[in-house]
Design a binder for these strands. Structure first.
Length: 381
DNA sequence: CCCTCCCGCCACCCT
DNA sequence: AGGGTGGCGGGAGGG
């Protein structure tokens, strides 16, 4: 493997400083990735390019790219090539995940392990060729069980399922272990569980760098949890906490120093002078527990003029997000979608835990829905 | 000590 | 065969 890449790329002081985990986090890397590509003119992204510009190994780029693709921000174009869809694509992707979530909890025929989650929410209006395998009929579908097995445990799938948890259930807050139990089947094996939890952390880190979720902890217990922040508009006010305080405090410092270059984790640490450069502002993770309110959205008063529509993704400087947000304001329509979906599909979760959780949230949702929509709750089950 | 989660080996897919 | 992908889990940093 030859030598490590020369440190020639390091801009300032070449000395290696103390190893800091935070500076190498997936979340930060993702932020950098986003600020690097979320600008006009960007259409396609080369993984090699990204890796070198961000100063990380390819492997890390895969992690990011996989979750970004899961929420629609990116789409795979070809080997080593992704196309940038932007944050505008998130709402649609989430919508699809939502519909998807209901659907595949319906056709989970036989007692199979995990419901297969349909591929992805792929492209949109733009009808590019985009071959990929034919979605519908495919010859020996079962023969590819090998591949499918792999896919089954992919970061991408896990991400989608994780998101579905919020989106399909209207849950605002889900604790880490709740999520892991639901997503990883019942904790059969401890080590398997551990591995999966690691993945959950990975996912959560990138999702939170996009501000789709936020890390917190449950009110009662101090257990770690994730709060859904959603994509702004009509997100059922989970933490419609996109306001003053949250907005800025959550900002990550990025754009300034692009990189997670150098400083590998290692015991070798020739003394470090004082503190290292301070490009990295230490933004503390926000923790407004005051917002922590459980699912219960019964106190929603259907605020009509909320300023949430002006929400912008990520802590990016407004200039770079130019047209973002201008394209979507499909506010009310999702209600009917929900109604029809709800009555059309009877959600059937495999494991009891998921079922319980679901019905619990469903109750809350129904009352909320009836209030907001001004009609009697639809009957489910 | 336990929780987070970075790192990179190496099994798997594609060409 | 060769290179791109990405599961996986050891083990180190952080609280």
């Amino acid at each position: 493997m030859a030598a490590r890449s020369p440190a020639s790329t390091v801009p300032e002081s070449s000395k290696h400083h103390a190893y800091s985990r935070k500076q190498k986090s997936l979340g930060l890397l993702c932020s950098n990735f986003l600020s690097l590509y979320n600008r006009d003119g960007i259409t396609s992204i080369g993984l090699d390019d990204a890796a070198s510009r961000l100063g990380v190994e390819r492997r890390r780029i895969y992690d990011i790219v996989n979750v970004l693709e899961s929420v629609g921000v990116l789409a795979r174009k070809a080997k080593n090539q992704y196309s940038w869809k932007g944050f505008e694509a998130i709402p649609k992707a989430l919508q699809e995940l939502k519909a998807d979530g209901w659907k595949d909890n319906c056709n989970s025929f036989d007692g199979n392990e995990y419901s297969k989650v349909s591929d992805d929410e792929d492209d949109d209006t733009n009808g590019s060729q985009n071959d990929k395998s034919n979605p519908g009929l495919n010859p020996k579908s079962s023969a590819s069980s090998k591949t499918e097995h792999r896919r089954e445990k992919s970061l991408a799938l896990l991400t989608q399922n994780f998101v579905k948890l919020f989106v399909c259930t209207n849950a605002c807050l889900i604790s880490l272990d709740e999520a892991s139990k639901l997503l990883l089947g019942d904790a059969h094996n401890l080590s398997v569980m551990r591995t999966k939890v690691r993945r959950l952390y990975d996912i959560a880190n990138v999702l939170s760098s996009m501000n789709l979720i936020e890390k917190t902890h449950t009110v009662d217990t101090r257990k770690p949890a994730f709060r859904w922040l959603g994509y702004g508009e009509s997100t059922e006010n989970c933490g419609s906490a996109h306001n003053s305080l949250t907005t800025e405090s959550r900002k990550r410092a990025f754009g300034t120093d692009v990189t997670n270059i150098n400083f590998k984790r290692s015991k070798v640490d020739s003394s470090i002078g004082g503190t290292l450069n301070s490009n990295f502002n230490k933004q503390k993770q926000v923790k407004y527990e005051s917002f922590v309110h459980e699912v219960d959205r019964s106190n929603v008063e259907e605020d009509p003029k909320d300023g949430s529509k002006s929400y912008q993704f990520g802590p990016f400087s407004p200039v770079t997000v130019a047209r973002v947000g201008a394209s979507e304001h499909s506010n009310p329509r999702r209600f009917h979608d929900w109604e029809s979906l709800a009555s059309a599909y009877q959600p059937q979760y495999q494991n009891q835990a998921l079922k319980d959780l679901f019905s619990h949230y469903m109750e809350a949702w129904k009352s909320w829905y009836s209030k907001v929509a001004g009609k009697k709750p639809i009957k489910i089950s």
